[in-house]
């Protein structure tokens, strides 16, 4: 009956060796807020659970000298939320992270887990993508770095190879006149999975014209989308109504959702446009205040 091993490596190398040498399925335990649910529901039957929280690198949230941040893959949302620096610089990323579940879930939920669970609706992912975050991956062949949007391959699937795991993330320094935001649509006010999620990060010039933008959508396709046409629709504009309409249309056009218990194709598509407009307005407002 009892066949699951539990390991708590203290170094990255040790973790890689455990993952590589595992008989059967090896699962990484960071916050556990998805893993334990799957375990309990008999959706997974791992041979070994590797708790990475004893590896110092996975638990650190550091503001680097260049203004960028290194965020350990197992840092909990509540820990990040208590940090004034990152909350001020990247409010969208923190909001998105903060929307993963309840206060209790926040006590555990990590960016590494939310990303590698590879749900199309993971809340933190569109915000991470919009902010241009990258993942620092350790594996049998050493370290490599991938943009966050390259990590997931489809629902429940990642592009990580056997033995690989995400140790930490890099969040760029906040650009001057930059702002980010994340919004999601849920039927309640809390405790739901996003029906649509939208992240945006952009920069403005002195005149208020958008100089760069990255817009991402969650829960409207198999993986989180980077909507380049939406960014194009607003770059060079001051977010006039025509630009916002074009943005709305681009977000809708990018959608390739499914009908499921949480929403219909029509609903998701329409709301993607609505959230696109709203999230860009918030991000621009934040950028303008800097």
């Amino acid at each position: 009956m009892e066949s699951i091993q539990f390991r708590k490596p203290e170094t990255v190398d040790e973790a890689v060796k455990l993952l590589q040498g595992a008989d059967g399925d090896a699962r990484i335990l960071a916050g556990g807020t998805d893993l334990l649910v799957q375990l309990r529901a008999h959706m997974i039957d791992p041979g070994v659970i590797v708790d990475i929280k004893s590896i110092a690198e996975t638990r650190e949230l550091t503001k680097n000298d260049d203004g960028s941040y290194t965020i350990g893959a197992a840092v909990a949302g509540a820990e990040a939320h208590e940090r004034d620096d990152i909350t001020a610089d990247w409010p969208g990323v923190i909001e998105a992270w903060d929307l993963i579940g309840s206060t209790q879930i926040q006590g555990r939920a990590s960016l590494g887990g939310n990303l590698c669970n590879a749900s199309p609706a993971g809340d933190s992912v569109p915000a991470m993508v919009a902010a241009g975050m990258t993942a620092n991956i350790a594996g049998p062949d050493g370290r490599r770095t991938l943009p966050v949007e390259k990590i997931t391959a489809g629902p429940g699937k990642t592009n990580l190879k056997k033995g690989e795991f995400i140790v930490s993330f890099n969040l760029p320094a906040k650009p001057s006149n930059g702002g980010d935001a994340y919004l999601r649509l849920i039927p309640r006010t809390e405790m739901d999975i996003a029906v649509v999620g939208c992240g945006a990060a952009l920069t403005l010039d002195e005149s208020g014209t958008v100089t760069s933008a990255k817009i991402s959508l969650g829960a409207v396709a198999a993986t989180v989308l980077v909507v380049e046409d939406a960014a194009k629709a607003i770059i060079g504009t001051k977010l006039e109504p025509e630009a916002m309409s074009a943005l709305d249309a681009a977000c809708q056009a990018a959608c390739n959702p499914i009908d499921d218990k949480r929403g219909t194709v029509e609903y998701r598509t329409k709301v993607a446009g609505v959230l696109g407009r709203r999230v860009v307005s918030i991000a621009a407002n934040r950028a303008g205040k800097n």
Binding site: P187, R188, T189, M191, D192, R262
Partner: peptide, 29 residues
Amino acid sequence: ALNEEYIYNSKGQLDNPGFLDYRIPVASD
């Protein structure tokens, strides 16, 4: 009135047998 419902798939199996997708009001609602 607003959010509670049973969602059945085409085979007649309940698709939302949990508090995540059977949405009873939470405090902030």
